[in-house]
Design a binder for these strands. Structure first.
Lengths: 227, 227
DNA sequence: TGTACATCAGTGAACGCGCGTTCACTGATGTAC
DNA sequence: TGTACATCAGTGAACGCGCGTTCACTGATGTAC
């Protein structure tokens, strides 16, 4: 196994530069990504991009996958940094790290969690990495959940329980359905609040954004049973 | 005050037809709305649209405003239909009516609650009608909230309380901050879950969609204190 | 070490398409006298 | 009731722009003998 040739190294550097330029474009133009624009920014002719990506959709897919990965890394790092702390602290650290990433990369966040990009349909590969954040939340809940508060006034609807059971079995896990259910509630809430904040729906409503986020996520920590 | 002239009536009918065609286009092409496409569907030349809307953005604005109005009407009707029922039933009826509307009009829903449309920035007029649903939820909570469950483990952060106070005073209301806070939590959750469902993030995860929605919204009803 | 050939990154022109918006126009409908 | 004029919906051509993708090409870098 020889070291990658010069050509191969230059090629992968160029690939990175293309993706970086595309990310910068996304940040400016929203979800409309123009190949010609990217090429222009790189001082390159548009058709040259086809040496690196067979089509616009493939470039978009690469950006989406890497964004999921970046988000997952952020969450994992936040958890690792606060490991040793109690689960509630870890929970809040992970949630805040997701928010920080979203605020720092609003366009990429929109790509992942906004309305679907017109004319683009995500290949199946993009589904798996989307699950990383929720896995991390499950891990923390599993480590620290004392008891669900409040105890459920009505039991889980049977069809919902079946869906959750199936998901748990797919992971060969022994998680109780109730815990996964609550984590999903928290996960839904996390991205619901982030959408509101990133897409401007809190404008002229809530100004204390960070405190508001902490407040919501603390409530979710309660719900999941973290003390 | 005479009856509207024939010309005026024809004009307003045509305006409605344009908006209807634009809505149909939206449903097919996602958030990219093409004037030429709309004109084509109407068997009309594109420039003729300028007799009715001074620009594409104005047409988009009209669609957004009417979508908010339609959603508000749906919620109000659902509440009126279940009036007399206990607040928890009303709460669930309103939440489900919002979901039903979103499922029936996914593209318009995306316009309202998805990522911002590239190149379009909403005028201030679109802010007010967006609040109708949350007002309705507040009204129900106010009518029926017994007691917040669970009592808050930590008090509302002061800056958040200040934001809520300000909003309450703007409405000259006497709502306790805690109640508005919980309704906002539920409101955030409602649209968080809807985004997940409408934008396909529950695909191959949760199949029992209606039951799942009821389950989440019941939890939120608990949180708000509806028995 | 030197030569012949293969690989491949980037060029530039072209194809065929779409878009929003403007403008001078035609012809029908409405209004005033 | 009839005529003269004003209003205005819709036409069709044009402007100037953008886009993704293809293709034959040049010229530099790498590989094999």
């Amino acid at each position: 196994m020889s070291a990658p040739s010069l050509r191969a190294r230059v090629r992968s550097e160029m690939t990175e530069e293309i993706k970086a330029a595309a990310r910068r474009r996304l940040a400016m133009d929203g979800t409309n990504l123009s190949l010609r624009g990217v090429a222009r920014d790189l001082g390159i002719v548009a058709s040259a991009l086809y040496r690196y990506f067979p089509s616009r959709d493939d470039l978009l897919t690469a950006l989406i996958m890497e964004a999921y990965q970046a988000l997952a890394d952020t969450a994992d790092t936040a958890d690792a940094t606060s490991s040793g702390a109690d689960p509630r602290t870890r929970w809040l650290a992970v949630c805040h790290s997701v928010r920080d990433w979203a605020l720092a990369h609003p366009a990429e966040y929109g790509l992942l969690y906004g309305s679907p990009v017109p004319g683009y349909d995500a290949p199946d590969d993009t589904v798996a990495p989307a699950a990383a954040v929720v896995f991390r939340l499950v891990a923390i809940a599993q480590a620290g959940a004392k008891e669900l508060t409040p105890p459920l006034p009505t039991p889980l609807p049977a069809p919902v329980r079946a869906d959750l059971r199936r998901l748990i079995e797919q992971q060969s896990s022994d998680l109780p359905e109730e815990v996964l259910d609550r984590v999903f509630v928290a996960w839904t809430h996390l991205f619901g609040l982030l959408n509101f904040e990133i897409f401007g729906r809190l404008d002229s409503t809530i100004e204390a954004r960070a405190e508001y986020f902490t407040h919501h996520m603390s409530l979710m920590a309660d719900l999941v049973g973290l003390r």
